[in-house]
Write a protein that binds this DNA or RNA. Structure first.
Lengths: 231, 231
DNA sequence: GGCCGCCGGATTTTCGAAAATCCTGTGAAC
DNA sequence: GTTCACAGGATTTTCGAAAATCCGGCGGCC
């Protein structure tokens, strides 16, 4: 079995690796919004030929992370305040409904998943700007896991998938909000409230707390946009 | 400028043509649910080399129309009663909200678009089984246009996009329902009711009519499933 | 008999180069 | 001075073949 420098995931394809690498670079901002993507650069970034890179871009384009201009190449999808608002509005709708269904259908095991995921997230320290980025990524992962756990009992694979896709889309914007200095609101308290209300099966208060949580996040990022774009 | 037998769309790419051709074949049932997709066959179907076909499959897979098993090829995504139910449940949620927003935001031009689209659809005769398939396709197009017009004023590009994707996903199931013999319910009347209520800005009745419309369609197809799978 | 490992064909996946297309800047015509 | 056509280079897109992987069957071994 041949091994490459950047060993491919066992059993996977190079195209899959390219997808993961480019996706990650876009989410992290390493590839900036609107930036043109040249095959030569992506090939050296991924360490492979043009074919799998192109396949990765086809997938990314189908998911809206990149944009394809026929015969003129690809570029990273731009960010905009309008899109941020739109994403949040739809997350409020979709995740609100998903949480409602989860509370309705969730069993004791669901409760314990939520509790466990919240605990793991709360244990990761998340103070101010000067935290190491490795720890930030760790918190991001736990945060995502917590939200997934919340919705995990909704019983609708499609709804879950839509929520997941919007979550990832929102990630590029969330990244901006970490640079906000005086995080006045208490994210941890919001999370805790959502968790408690959910487990206590107080459906509508829980849903409302989740929706408010998204609105708050959006408002914070929106302020950033208005004070001139980042970079 | 070189021209091929199956002339590519002006300015487009072969990969784009392959995507359209395979997508169409799947929607029409020419490529059956679950069927394995061999590159040799697809190449002769599309009349091109493997690379653009593969790119098309990557896109289709990202959208859920095909499934990729690494190193084992692709197959058409299967249909199931569970998925049908899930699609309908989510369409009720999403299109319901989109219609609500459309009624809220729509101006006179929106009203006229809805009216016009409904008229075009109503003019296409749609009797029983023995209608020519060309006419059925015509009706399908008008039907899709009517639903799009209804939601077109919702103001949320993302919500519109999600609705469109679910609509296309549902299309494969809708195709089954045409073979239902005693269409007892009156689809035309349902459409008319939705249109009238919407234009009269009777928001909640309109939304409820739309949601019932989907539920009825789903129930009809579901009966088909239970009487043994088609084919 | 049942199970494991290996061989050969079928198929997918990737490569490197050829073909097609786009972009830039130069120069001629008006 | 402006416009237009058109080379020349850069870039994307596609091809055909090579490499990698999978599937099925055969033979040896326990």
């Amino acid at each position: 079995m041949k091994e490459r420098d950047e060993a491919r995931v066992a059993g996977g394809t190079l195209a899959g690796d390219a997808y993961a690498a480019i996706h990650r670079a876009i989410r992290s901002g390493e590839l900036a919004p609107g930036q043109r993507l040249r095959f030569a650069e992506l090939q050296s970034l991924c360490g492979m030929s043009v074919t799998p890179v192109r396949e990765a871009l086809a997938r990314l384009t189908a998911e809206g992370f990149t944009i394809s201009d026929d015969h003129r190449g690809f570029r990273v999808a731009p960010l905009s305040l309008a899109e941020l608002r739109d994403i949040v509005a739809n997350r409020r709708l979709l995740e609100g409904e998903a949480l409602r269904l989860s509370i309705q259908n969730g069993d004791a095991e669901w409760e314990s998943r939520v509790l466990a995921a919240h605990h793991l997230m709360a244990r990761v320290p998340r103070e101010r700007d000067d935290i190491p980025s490795a720890m930030r990524e760790e918190w991001d992962r736990k945060h995502a896991a917590f939200h997934r756990a919340l919705l995990s009992a909704c019983g609708s694979p499609i709804l879950l998938d839509l929520c997941e896709k919007l979550f990832v889309k929102a990630d590029r914007y969330r990244r901006m909000s970490i640079s906000i200095p005086g995080q006045s609101r208490d994210v941890a308290r919001e999370h805790e409230a959502i968790m408690t209300l959910s487990i206590e099966r107080r459906t509508e208060p829980a849903v409302e707390a989740l929706r408010a949580h998204y609105q708050n996040t959006a408002d914070a990022v929106q302020r950033l946009f208005e004070d001139g774009r980042e970079d």
